[in-house]
Design a protein around this nucleic acid. Structure first.
Ligand SMILES: [Mn+2]
Ligand SMILES: [Mn+2]
Ligand SMILES: [Zn+2]
Ligand SMILES: [Zn+2]
Lengths: 165, 165
DNA sequence: ATCGAGATTGAGAATCAATTTCAAAATGAA
DNA sequence: TTCATTTTGAAATTGATTCTCAATCTCGAT
């Protein structure tokens, strides 16, 4: 009878890593931190602090916004989350454990975010940097526009209400 | 005796275009606006509102920051300047008249900004968008790191003070 | 289990860029 | 010139984030 080795959820792994990262520098484990980290890793996608705070206060209304900010900064420093600064809005965080570098397509109508990886683009970026004697540490590639669904919605309204005015 | 056709400075052209853009929508020409636009186009590079305000108040100390913000927004709407939101700092503006789209290399040590165009990267971006059924309106590609000079400075200090502690 | 140095907390204040408000001044078409 | 409309500068406001601080918690050493 085959047994799959019990796979640790990446949330669990993240909590472990955070624990060692925290103790490694004399920080302390707290109930609030655990709750926030737990909540964060139980979500997918790109979460703003406000959105996260909502979920967190649903579980414990006494937790303050500052603590969520502080905790997400720790997660980021520990390499377990990454902060994204898309156009206009607040900072958004996404889980970073076991994830490749990737870039984003952002729908300016509905706010949905798609991810992509393109090795060829990365190479060309490296080449550009090289040509300028530049040592790149990180980069940002974001494509803004309309997702498929929002294009279709637009199309629908254009058909129903042609040539307004 | 050959004569080159007198070439209008792009600053002058920008002022003309702005004038028609302004009158086209019932706005009014003002001394402050002229001064700000003049100052902006007499500079090169990527200017923050603060930096621009400094130059502007040197010429007329009575001009307020709000007016500079408002004027740069008009220039942007008119397509004569473009706003750039690099990591961390304030919005920076660059002249947009007669300029191709381009992207940036930003030195995180000295703040210098290099520009580049790469048609191949743009094509690949289009392909990515297409694959996701995404209609891109604009994008942002920014490479952060150390410029040549800052790398050399680092190198110099590493040689002079090896293995500290 | 208790202690105590040091870390963490939540609330509210502070910061910072940017926008808005508002009363006074400027613009420009008639 | 008139005068509806736009613009201005100063100050207030906004919104995201960080900071401050007194009270509370954590955890290694007793
Ligand atoms: Mn992502
Ligand atoms: Mn540029
Ligand atoms: Zn959409
Ligand atoms: Zn540099």
């Amino acid at each position: 009878m085959k047994r799959v080795a019990p796979r640790k959820s990446s949330a669990a792994t993240a909590r472990e890593r955070l624990a060692s990262w925290i103790s490694a520098r004399g920080l302390k484990a707290t109930r609030q931190r655990d709750l926030i980290v737990d909540t964060f890793f139980s979500q997918t996608g790109h979460l703003s602090v406000d959105e996260l705070l909502d979920k967190v206060t649903a579980r414990d209304p006494s937790i303050g916004a500052a603590t969520v900010y502080r905790t997400m900064k720790i997660l980021t420093d520990a390499g377990l989350a990454s902060a994204r600064h898309f156009e206009g809005g607040q900072t958004r965080y996404e889980a970073a454990l076991d994830r490749h570098h990737h870039d984003h397509l952002i729908c300016t109508s509905c706010g949905s975010i798609l991810e992509f990886e393109n090795e060829r683009i990365e190479e060309l970026q490296d080449r550009v940097a090289e040509q300028h004697g530049f040592a790149v540490t990180h980069h940002k590639l974001e494509l803004y526009g309309l997702c498929k669904r929002c294009q279709e919605k637009d199309e629908y309204f254009r058909k129903r209400f042609p040539d307004p005015r």
